[in-house]
Design a binder for these strands. Sequence first.
DNA 1: CGTTCGCTCACTCTTTTGGGGTAGGTGCGC
DNA 2: GCGCACCTACCCCAAAAGAGTGAGCGAACG
Lengths: 220, 220
Amino acid sequence: MRLDARNWPHTAMGGNLANHDAKVRVLIEHSDAIVNAGLAALLGAESDMQLAQPQLTQADVIILDHKGALEHMRQRANAPHHNEAPPRVLIVTQLEREWEVRTAMMAGVHGYLLQSCAADQLPAAVRALSRGLRYLSADLSRCVADSFTRVGLTNRETDVLQLLAQGQCNKSIARELGIGVGTVKTHVKGLFDKLGATARTHAVVLATRRGLVGDGVIDL
Amino acid sequence: MRLDARNWPHTAMGGNLANHDAKVRVLIEHSDAIVNAGLAALLGAESDMQLAQPQLTQADVIILDHKGALEHMRQRANAPHHNEAPPRVLIVTQLEREWEVRTAMMAGVHGYLLQSCAADQLPAAVRALSRGLRYLSADLSRCVADSFTRVGLTNRETDVLQLLAQGQCNKSIARELGIGVGTVKTHVKGLFDKLGATARTHAVVLATRRGLVGDGVIDL
DNA sequence: CGTTCGCTCACTCTTTTGGGGTAGGTGCGC
DNA sequence: GCGCACCTACCCCAAAAGAGTGAGCGAACG
C-alpha cells in the first residue's frame, strides 16, 4: 500500500515494448460523446496511430474516463488471463483529484491526462503507453507525489472520520460504531494529530480535500 | 434574485429569431483542447452549421466552458453596446453543480449542456439557441428547479459560512469579520436553521453538498 | 409612520469538544 | 517472550459550542 513517489515520474520509465513498427492501435471508449469525438479527431490526425473499433481488434492503448477505467481494471482482474498482453489504459478526465489519480495508478492504469492538458500531450501520452511507459502530466505527478505524504489512518480512525464527515457528534458516532464516547474522542484526537487539524470541523475540511472521505461531498 | 423555475423550461420558450435561412455560425472556444476538437467534429458534420473562426466572423452561437462563459458574460456586460445582436452562449462542461448552472443562467447564458449528454443533444442545443430559445438538458432543468428550494442566506450568513467551511472556530470567525463572538453564534444558528443542520460540522457538509461553499473543497 | 428584516450584541445555561494523562486487552512480528 | 501498534476505556478540566431569550439600530417597504 505504501507507494514510492519515484515510481511515478513525469515523463516515464522503462518497460517492455510492443508494436515497434506498426501503428499504435488506439481504442477510445470515453463515456462522454463529445470527449470521444475530440479524442478521435486529435488522434486520428496522427500518422502513427490507428483508431480501433470496439471489440473488433486488440488495441494497444485504450482510453477511458476515470470510472470506466476502474471498471475495466476490475473486470480485467477477475477475468482469466489472456495470452496477448492487455491494452494499456489511459484515463482522460476533467477533474484533478489526487486520490483518484492514486487509486487509478494502484489499479494498474498506465496514464492519466486532464482534458485541460495541451493538445500535444495526448498523442505523447498514447505513444508513451504504447512503448510500455507510464504517462502522468507534470501537475498530476506533483499532485500524486504530494499525496504520498498521506497520513496513515487506522481502520477505526477511518470509520470515525467517515461519520465525522457526515457531521455527526461523538455520541452518535459512538452509538453507530458500538463503542464508548471516550473511545470516539480518542480516535478523533488521533485524527487531529494526523491531519494537523485543530477542530473537528477543520478535520472534516482537511480530510475532504485530501480525498479521505468516501462519501458524496463532491457529488451534488 | 428570486428566480422562478418556470422560466427555465427543459425544451424552450420563445424569443427573437436570427439567421432564419443561413447556416448557423458556431464559434467554439472551449478551454479544453480535447473537448474543442470533439465539438468541432460533431458540429462540423451537421449540414446546417458552419464553424466560425475566432474574431473573424460574427457568430450566432458561441460554445464555452463554464469559466470562460462567465468571463465572456462579464466582459459583455462591461462592453459598450453593439448594433449587432451578441452571440448566444452555450456552456458545455462535465460537472453538474446546480449552483453553477443557476449562476450561468442568471449571467445571461442561454444553454447549458453536460459533456455526458447524448451526442444529438449538442446540435439540438445549438439550433435552439440560434432560434433564440434556451436549452437546458432535462436533468439539469430538474437540478435547477430543485435548487429553487434553496435557502436564502443573508450576506453575513454567507460570510460566516465560508469561514465555517474552513474549519474555523467562532472566535476566529469573529476576529476575521470584526464582530463579536455572540454575533457569530447568531449567524451560525441562522445557518443551522436554514440548512437543517444540527451542528457546525453538519452544516459544513450540507453547505458543501449544496454548493454554497465557494472555496476549494473541490479543488485539491 | 409603522412594520419587517438584517446586523449587532449580551446574557444565561446545558451540552459538547478538546487537551491532558493513564491503562487494560489483543494481535502481530522480531 | 517482548515490543509495538491498535482498539478500547476512563479520569479531570478548561474551552467551546449550542439553545434560548432579549434588545438596540438602520435600511427598505407599504
